[in-house]
Design a protein around this nucleic acid. Structure first.
Lengths: 238, 238
DNA sequence: TCAAAAGTGTTGACTTTACACCCATGA
DNA sequence: TCATGGGTGTAAAGTCAACACTTTTGA
């Protein structure tokens, strides 16, 4: 009773499946920044009437000739002018009602970028940084997407050196701790935090000190070269 | 210089994006089983000429009117006759050359099912269980998909009670340990394993003993009701 | 009586947490 | 001299890994 061996070519298969080429796929990039001891996320005002007044994360449809990663890098660089930034895929959202234009499935990525980056032109498009903690509602299912990306970020932050794009090249341990506290939304013990970071061996001591701080200056550190994460040396993290 | 407020309706947006509705999306289900102290995976012989002789994991195109999760449950139940089994989304693979029929992006899920399940009709379709350790090459990028799902399974197995679909309802701690060893592909210390499982509080002691074993019988346990994972009470795991 | 696996605790190594004092700087 | 944060160590609690002997059963 076994099925007959009935090979078909890909070309033939494609014809029989043409009906299915009726779903669009997009990428959405949850881009985190950090300023004033708060974790921020870059949002754009939705240009859909259905979501008038609401913000959404940055996304775009995937072009037929680009892969998912390229699409997410394109969104990132088109919107922020930044190249070569690490993006992490988080989850794909495929509910049927999630986009009013039709069937759009989206793959969510997160990324971390320096909020003070130069090429950045916030005024030209309705792009704004929002405090993650203040966000109650977004267009589409983007609140769910944001939450999932934030959870993933929190899971990874102590295991992998992912947060250093959010700091200047040289930073003190206090700045690093403030950043961790903003991301995790908890207080950390200073001595224990320093021990934990020291053990990871992520940092080089630059033998320099902070300037212009209204208190005793701290030592400056930088992320070791081998831990710098970019699109081109992306490390498999799990 | 700010952009004019220029809202468009979803309908209008759709027209301008029609070109993009040219990518198909599929789901691929990596279905793990367990037999003879080995972790297995359910594979089907590829019916594409391009991959003649190679196996692939179970997948199908997503229909325009079903969401991603429904599509993966459909694949699972069509192929195995099983309903109400937990599926975990792992990753979406979107390389441009990954499918010879055209642009197909796929979202991978894994699932664990009892290899001895009744409705199962292995002969009717070229469906076979393969030892995970023996698999060297698969059709498409399915080896990568399998590896990623296996990694995810290994990460979750000690943190969450995910493996119990692979065992009969009543099982001994030795059977459970053998299963963990097969999944993780390492040996575990018996006493430490039992302690670790006891702490999780996943099991009920049934006050029954094994029968028909050629050695001292062990106690039988079952997974507590509140930890049983099905499609309908799926627990958010991260 | 033998073979096979069940069942069970302790010790040492390591990790994690909580916690307090003096120091350097700028205002 | 005050306010601010820098820099540092220790003790107690908890977790993890290694390890061996007696018991029960069927063959």
């Amino acid at each position: 009773m076994s099925k007959e061996l009935n090979l078909k070519t890909a070309a033939i298969e494609k014809i029989s499946h043409l009906d299915y080429f009726n779903i669009a796929i997009s990428v959405d990039c949850v881009i985190f920044g950090y300023d004033n001891k708060e974790l921020k996320v870059l949002l754009i005002k939705s240009d859909l009437e259905e979501f008038a007044g609401l913000y959404s994360v940055l996304g775009d449809l995937v072009r037929p000739d680009e892969d998912l990663e390229s699409a997410s890098y394109r969104v990132l660089s088109e919107r922020t002018g930044m190249e070569d930034v690490y993006l992490e895929q988080v989850h794909t959202f495929g509910g049927i009602g999630r986009h009013p234009s039709g069937r759009v499935i989206t793959t969510a990525y997160y990324s971390l970028i320096d909020i003070k980056h130069h090429k950045f032109k916030l005024n030209h498009n309705e792009l704004h940084w929002h405090s993650v903690n203040d966000i109650k509602k977004l267009a589409f299912d983007h609140k769910k997407i944001l939450d999932k990306c934030l959870n993933r970020l929190r899971e990874q932050v102590m295991e992998h050196p992912v947060v250093f794009n959010l700091l200047p090249e040289k930073f003190s341990l206090r700045e690093l701790q403030d950043l961790y506290q903003a991301i995790l939304d908890i207080d950390l013990d200073r001595r224990n935090f320093r021990k934990k970071i020291a053990i990871k061996d992520w940092l080089v001591d630059l033998n320099e000190m902070e300037n212009d701080v209204p208190h005793r200056p701290g030592k400056l550190y930088a992320l070791k070269k081998q831990h710098q994460r970019t699109s081109t040396n992306a490390v498999v993290m799990q």
